[in-house]
Simulated scan of single mutants.
Amino acid sequence: MTQLNMIDESRYAETMERTVIPALEACREEGWFDPSEAERSAGLAPLSGTMDTGGRSGQLHYLCYDANKFDGEREEGATATFRGAIVISHGFTEFAEKYDELVWYFLLAGYSVCVMDHRGHGKSARDVDNPSLVWIDDWRRYVADLAAFAQTVGQNYANGQPLNLFCHSMGGGIGAAVLERYPTLFDRAVLSAPMIAPQTGMPMWLTRALVGTLCACGLGRHRVFGQKDFDGVLDLGPYQLSSEPRERWYHRLRCEHPEYQTYCASFEWVRQAMHMNRAVLSPAACAEVETPILLFQCGHDIWVRNQPQTEFVNRVKDGGGHAAIVHLADSEHEVFSMPNAVYGPYLERILAFFGDPVLAEVE
């Protein structure tokens, strides 16, 4: 595997604007995915969307990047060897373009990349009028959407080569559920700080009881206490260890695109996260996993709980699956937002795992 050169953080915005973004645009396809058939197959009534950021009722937005077209740009460091495709499942309040830098590195390594905005995020259909609020009626909808996207668009970009999965945070919880329900869909899976269980500031049993009561009282579409709508102010307080140039770049994208300004959770979203937690940690479900998993756990994570991640990996292994944890003691929740000293080794380990034919990382 060719060693990748990380973007110089002192010239981050300049490099993104002059090199990365033009190269991505040259190999990028923007599209829309209709999840209604997949959702019906999962026993879910399709939602039409009350707030439609993309002008396509009920459809989900995606960005895909073709490795062969990228190679035609002759970027320095590109392997020019096609290795398959990677589907990215993003985190809570995120959007496809936030992953531009990671997509760049995956393309350099020879992978096509497919990123879908989860329902209620980015340019995908939404079901609440407040553009800052994230709401979902049933966590299984996320799972059906991601699986169907991978089975169609993802497989097409893999073109007979391996189809791998990269997940972060909420997207990791969704990804874990997909791996349990569609055990042969992906060849390898990286779960980066996955939301097997969110950090709510209170015991899990109390969170379940509280949000269950509030939703029963008709407050499911209301904002969680203590959270606020997007106001355009960059707060670096929770990101003391992160790379400031990266955080400023993400914030700029949010400010420039109203559809990227999801910022807070509804009570129903939290309730569904609790339901997903129980389902994903079911020993029977964990025993269904066949895809080798590499899970990254962060020592300074304030957004998701680490112990349920460990339980998930142990239960997958108890069920006969291949799974391993890499504990990053010096990392905050978003490893891809950390300085190069943390991000670089993390990326190298991911690429080694995706490219390793003998599963050395998970033995």
Rank of each mutant, 00 (worst) to 15 (best):
P345Y: 07
A109D: 14
A176P: 01
T50A: 13
Q155N: 08
C64T: 10
K69N: 12
L179C: 12
R305N: 11
P245T: 02
V113P: 05
L63P: 04
A324K: 14
L133K: 01
V113N: 06
D145A: 06
E361H: 15
A147W: 11
L236C: 03
A13K: 15
Y65D: 06
S36F: 08
L60P: 07
W139R: 10
L63G: 04
P22K: 15
L146R: 08
G175I: 01
A265L: 09
D138K: 03
E94S: 06
L108Q: 13
E247S: 06
D231N: 07
E14I: 06
V342Y: 14
R271Y: 02
R140V: 06
A352P: 13
R141H: 07
F70I: 01
W32Q: 05
Y250K: 01
E348Q: 15
P245A: 02
V316T: 09
A85I: 02
G201W: 13
R181K: 15
G201V: 02
F336A: 14
G122R: 04
P292R: 15
A193Q: 09
A96L: 01
A189Y: 12
A360H: 13
C264L: 03
D229F: 04
G55N: 01
H90Y: 03
T200G: 15
D330E: 15
V316L: 07
W104C: 04
R271A: 09
I350F: 05
D235K: 08
Q3P: 09
M276K: 09
L102T: 14
R126L: 02
R278K: 11
Y260C: 00
Y142V: 05
A265Y: 14
L179P: 03
T93H: 08
F166T: 11
R246L: 05
W104F: 08
P203S: 09
W32L: 05
T19C: 11
R305M: 09
A148I: 00
T291A: 11
A147C: 07
Y346S: 11
M6C: 04
P198S: 14
G173W: 08
S36M: 04
N5K: 14
P283T: 06
E361P: 09
E25C: 14
A80R: 15
A67K: 07
F296N: 10
D330W: 03
A216I: 09
N5P: 00
V289P: 00
A352C: 13
A352T: 13
G175D: 02
C255G: 04
W269M: 00
L165I: 05
E348C: 09
E94P: 00
V211S: 15
G212L: 04
D100A: 12
L63Q: 11
P46Y: 07
V103F: 01
T310V: 11
N156W: 12
Q161N: 13
E30T: 15
G58D: 03
N277F: 12
P198N: 12
E256I: 00
R126C: 03
E247F: 12
L24N: 08
L351M: 07
R252N: 11
P345W: 07
V87K: 05
E14G: 01
G84F: 04
L295D: 10
R305P: 00
G175C: 04
D66Q: 06
R74I: 01
H168N: 09
C255Q: 08
G175H: 08
G355W: 02
H61W: 09
H257T: 02
M274P: 00
M51W: 06
H275W: 07
G212Q: 07
N156R: 13
I86H: 02
Y62T: 00
V113K: 04
P345F: 06
R126S: 03
C27P: 10
T81V: 12
S331M: 05
C264M: 02
